[in-house]
């Protein structure tokens, strides 16, 4: 488990949706945390900046849980690290 990345996602979530810190787990869906579409695109925007990846719309759309977001970024980071 990439704890740094998980913590990054958790803290970005807390910034977009203050008060979600309590009981936050990777299994929680974004919807159950009260994120609407604007909150979600803002979250992804913050994370793209912090992590240095660009999340395609298709992947953004299929991310339902916090864990999906973490996994998606992890995958994209590997692609970036592997180089062109």
């Amino acid at each position: 488990m990439d704890d740094v990345l998980t913590q990054q996602v958790f803290s970005a979530l807390a910034k977009v949706k203050p008060g979600v810190g309590e009981g936050l787990t990777a299994e929680r869906t974004l919807e159950s945390l009260g994120l609407d579409s604007l909150d979600t695109i803002t979250l992804l925007f913050e994370l793209e900046d912090q992590v240095g990846v660009s999340i395609p719309d298709e992947e953004a759309r299929s991310a339902r849980t916090v864990g999906d977001v973490i996994e998606c970024i992890r995958r994209l980071k590997r692609v970036v690290a592997a180089g062109p």
Partner: peptide
């Protein structure tokens, strides 16, 4: 682009496979 509502290919209103 940041709004994530633009289709990468084409616009298919009311179609199940619409992407924006």
């Amino acid at each position: 682009e940041a709004m994530r509502v633009i289709a990468p290919d084409t616009c298919r209103p009311f179609s199940r496979d619409r992407k924006g």
